[in-house]
């Protein structure tokens, strides 16, 4: 199918040159370029076969015809190599390009705001030297109450409405049972944090859910004091809520700590001047804490004359509500994707 028969004279090469110029101009894309390459410059292309026939020519003809053919081949390769069609592909008769059309609909994922909040808290506390520990959701009465100095038939048990599976098995009402498990398995110094899901048998409302996340911290060593607890919580609060945060502590009651305290953090929204989030008080109640009760240390086999310790705990859901300005806790558990995509 090659046309070498047409171009056997020196003059006819001028015609070939014209033909090639037209063919190069006609190239619109890579496919037609490849067709051109095969036709003219390929192994079985026109130039190869014409050049093969040169050896049969007279010396004179070899010089003139062969020289011209070689020059034409070189110039063709050069012109073809410059890929003139690419320029026209990019810059030619272009349609008006509209970058404002919607993107390709790559699905977008997200991480739940409760997870994000938990991880932020965990990261700060890990940075402060706490190690993570975990425990089961379904606990025994012993770990959830008894070992934490909640005697049977004590009204303190009313503080945490409990879901029971059987007389001695229940859904943990706090992450504190993990404290006991950690103390049973490790020797002081202990510096642990215990995140997890906890359950309370309470009606579901905008302000509380029967299930929520909690993070508990525990530090036991020689000479750990309330001053250390205050310092730790102040440092955490400033890292989490902002550098200008202050804390206020006041007495409270948890059976497993003595003294027990509630920790209020200066409202990070109004900076203490009073707003609807802090109910005009300027303070937000976010943490419960205290010095580990000597009975709790003793029941986990830790010498309470040698060691003291502190513990603190916070509700992840409540902190997430405050952090994102959400007014209904149920939004976290409904998982409306219009809600989830905001985080």
């Amino acid at each position: 199918m090659n046309d070498e028969g047409h171009y056997t004279t020196t003059q006819s090469l001028d015609q070939l040159e014209q033909e090639i110029a037209g063919a190069i101009q006609a190239i619109k894309n890579d496919d037609s370029a490849e067709a051109f390459r095969i036709k003219y410059l390929g192994k079985k292309g026109l130039f190869r076969s014409l050049l093969k026939s040169v050896k049969d020519l007279s010396l004179e003809e070899r010089k003139t015809y062969g020289g011209k053919l070689n020059a034409l081949r070189n110039s063709t390769e050069e012109r073809f190599g410059a890929k003139p069609w690419e320029e026209s592909m990019e810059g030619g008769e272009e349609e008006c390009f509209d970058p404002t059309l919607p993107a390709w609909p790559i699905p977008k994922g997200s991480i739940h705001p409760l997870t994000k909040t938990r991880n932020e808290i965990v990261d700060i506390l890990v940075g402060m030297g706490f190690e993570l520990a975990y425990g089961p959701d379904v606990e025994t009465d012993y770990y959830n109450f008894e070992a934490l100095n909640f005697p049977k038939h004590h009204p303190a048990r009313d503080m945490q409405d409990t879901f029971f599976v059987s007389a001695d098995v229940l859904l943990r009402t706090h992450t504190s049972p993990v404290q006991v498990r950690v103390m049973e398995n490790q020797k002081p110094p202990i510096r642990s944090i215990m995140p997890g899901t906890v359950y309370r048998n309470e009606e579901i409302s905008a302000r509380s859910n029967c299930q929520f996340g909690q993070i508990e911290g525990l530090y036991i060593d020689e000479n750990v004091s309330l001053a250390d607890l205050k310092g730790t919580l102040l440092s955490f609060s400033r890292q989490f809520f902002g550098e200008d945060t202050d804390i206020k502590i006041r007495p409270s009651f948890f059976p497993f700590t003595e003294p027990s305290l509630e920790v209020d953090v200066r409202c990070f929204i109004c900076k203490g001047s009073g707003c609807s989030v802090c109910k005009q008080s300027g303070w937000l109640e976010v943490l419960g804490a205290g010095m580990v009760h000597p009975n709790v240390l003793a029941s986990s086999g830790i010498d309470n004359e040698k060691y003291t310790g502190f513990a603190f705990g916070m509700g992840i859901d409540r902190i997430a509500l405050l952090r994102y300005g959400i007014n209904d806790i149920r939004l976290f558990y409904e998982n409306d994707t219009r809600f989830l995509r905001q985080f």
Binding site: G129, D228, T232, I249, P251, E258, P294
Partner: peptide, 28 residues
């Protein structure tokens, strides 16, 4: 009922806000 309960009473009256805030911690 025990020593630590009295310590809490003393702390309450001393005022928790008056207890110093330590600014370092020993990390195991």
């Amino acid at each position: 009922t025990m020593e630590v309960d009295l310590i809490e009473e003393v702390g309450r009256l001393y005022g928790y806000d008056n207890i110093p805030t330590s600014d370092h911690a020993s990390v195991g």
